[in-house]
Nucleic acid binder design. Structure first.
Lengths: 365, 365
DNA sequence: CGGTGTCATGACATCGGTGTCATAGACGGG
DNA sequence: CCCGTCTATGACACCGATGTCATGACACCG
């Protein structure tokens, strides 16, 4: 006898299995004496009810599936993905487990073609819903199998009206740019993420909107895409962009970076060029990747990518859909916005005592 | 009818449920014609067998539980924990899923008192084994419940002979120090992790062993613990340590850091002091946290904390224990060693053209 | 042509719980 | 004292698979 069953408990307590069940679930009156006898037997045998048997009868698995590439991506590419994506899992986990359900986490290992397998495994476990988490804000790349299963997309979206939760990149960059403007900056350079990404497109809108409101013309020559996801050549790209910016007669007083990792690289390259942060130029990131933002010296001003909140929001949405099967799909993704975190890397241009103009070549090695 | 059952398939194909089962499992001959009829019915109904029913009959859940604080820690503390710990999960995931089993991942949310609950949930699911993952190398902090369930500890150990997989910190620091010595350094400063940690203790052994072999005396004044897990005050601690090192008549030519995050902070503080890496001093980390090591500029020489391999090793061990219930416990934890990754932050002292001596105060702000 | 073995298939019990229904006492009112 | 009601409990079927055993249809052999 590997594990005790309800029958073992019943025999030990001298009652019927059904009575044990009643003690377990408290769904019918049981006399004090019987209850105690049963509880003693349960404790002695170390009995734990079988989830399989229970869910078979009730036809409710109490399971929610989550598909992510986070766990594998974390190592594969030292990119903006990885750890932050994990916060989505974390946010979902907290909501799901608070609801008494269990989260089944599966990992694509970076291979989209494994998704059908993962969904099938979920179906075998009769999950009540599925969360699909993308590694960054993008259109859904696969057709999710699993007809009839409730799903919520996180960090991605489709055009079929599947419920989706995405970051409000436009509002995030808008708020961040407003903070930069509020500090007094007027010449703002922007090292964006790769072209073609949702985040790049949406954040540029937010950036421009903030500039317009401040009456500053958008200058495309102050904007360069430099994110190569940490692949070789990225440092060179950043270096070239900084060259271009600082060669100008009116060099920028602040550098916005598409993510905190880029900002970290920028710190290093600025150091090599002999330019101090923030004494000579302010630097701003994006993501609020705290490992970076708080450890960098000086600490980094950045906009939060509200991954944790997105995970929680998506999980709650999914639970609602499960509870009310008649609930309608959404026509629009839910957009979650995050806060701006002001830290030491952003100061007023007036506090930048050392002027950057014509620093070019000063300490190139 | 929410989901199709084997009975629905049987009816649609005009055969008995048992025959459908035979088609599914291929454990008995079925005629070609019958097989096709059944497969057609399965496809039409979108039938997926119920894991619950299956495991109830077979008494084998095919599940393995994993308990970690990684998912929550990732955000809580921007420390050496978080992402790297996740690689343990990743390594385990790959082995477990390759074995056809499913990994059930649970998260303590940083609260050890939740462990019994998590174990209980695992027991309800009748997991065949449990992996317990600590956030850094330490003695086991809790008594794991779940009598009779096979367990393997990862990144922690107890004195009861529970199978455990830990990093070989001594060998790692030894190899890393050997690399530093091989580059020609003789005056080596060491910013260690917090006192009292296993890693701190073991790595110091490795450090000293390498020094001894090179005939260099261990100088305690060149060793300072500066890791505050990213909490405020850490920068100050590092700053003070660097002051002390560089005030010497014979300042060190290289700084070993207890982890890559510390190295990142060191980069920033050195920049503020006007000291260039590696032109004036070499810097070395620990962990091979690639997000940091490859993005920092210059890229960081560091020793790999072989988390992924540890996860895989532990998972394989657990699978072996499950397959052979008679297998004995181990008296010693398995120690997994990682490689040294040489990158740009470490150069020969002869290549450090600018002497550090008496730089003190040069650019303090 | 009967006996025997193989192949293909089905009936039935079973895994561990829970829903349904029945029933034995206790208790109270008329 | 009888009957209705309520409380506490048990018998039994069932959820969806699969293991065991039985059986019908052939084919092959002597």
């Amino acid at each position: 006898m590997l594990v005790a069953t309800i029958y073992d408990v019943a025999k030990a307590a001298g009652v019927s299995p059904k009575t044990v069940s009643r003690v377990l679930n408290g769904d019918a009156p049981v006399s004090q004496k019987t209850r105690e006898a049963v509880q003693t037997a349960i404790a002695e045998l170390g009995f734990v009810p079988s989830h399989a048997a229970r869910s078979m009868k009730s036809n409710r698995s109490g399971l929610v599936g989550l598909i992510t590439g986070a766990i594998s991506n974390a190592d594969e590419v030292a990119s903006h993905a990885g750890l932050p994506e994990l916060q989505i899992v974390q946010g979902a986990q907290s909501i799901i487990s608070a609801s008494g359900k269990t989260l089944l986490i599966s990992d694509t290992g970076g291979r989209l073609d494994r998704v059908p397998d993962l969904v099938r495994t979920f179906q075998e476990h009769r999950v009540e819903g599925i969360l699909y988490v993308a590694d960054f804000h993008k259109p859904l790349e696969v057709t999710l199998p699993g007809k009839g299963i409730r799903k919520v997309l996180v960090n991605c979206f489709d055009d079929a009206g599947t419920p989706a939760v995405v970051p409000d990149d436009e509002a995030g960059q808008y708020a961040l740019t407003k903070s930069v403007l509020a500090a007094g900056h007027r010449r703002i350079a922007y090292l964006t993420l790769a072209e073609g990404q949702e985040a790049t497109r949406l954040r540029r809108f937010g950036f421009r909107r903030a500039l317009e409101e401040a009456g500053i013309a958008y200058d495309p020559t102050l904007v360069r895409a430099t994110d190569l996801f940490g692949r070789p050549g990225e440092h060179q790209l950043i270096w070239d962009a900084l060259d271009q910016f600082f060669d100008r007669a009116d060099p920028p007083t602040v550098l916005l970076c598409g993510n905190d990792r880029l900002a970290m690289a920028v710190y290093g390259i600025l150091r090599k060029r002999g330019i101090s942060v923030p004494e000579q130029v302010s630097v701003v990131g994006y993501d609020d990747h705290r490992l970076i933002a708080e450890t960098l010296y000086p600490s980094l001003t950045t906009a939060e990518l509200p991954y944790r909140a997105m995970g929680a929001r998506a999980a709650q949405w999914l639970l609602d859909l499960i509870a009310d099967p008649a609930a309608p799909d959404a026509s629009e993704p839910a957009r979650v916005s995050g806060q701006v975190h002001l830290r030491d890397s952003l100061v007023a241009p007036s506090a930048q005592h050392d002027n950057i103009i014509n620093l070019k070549g000063r300490t190139e090695t």
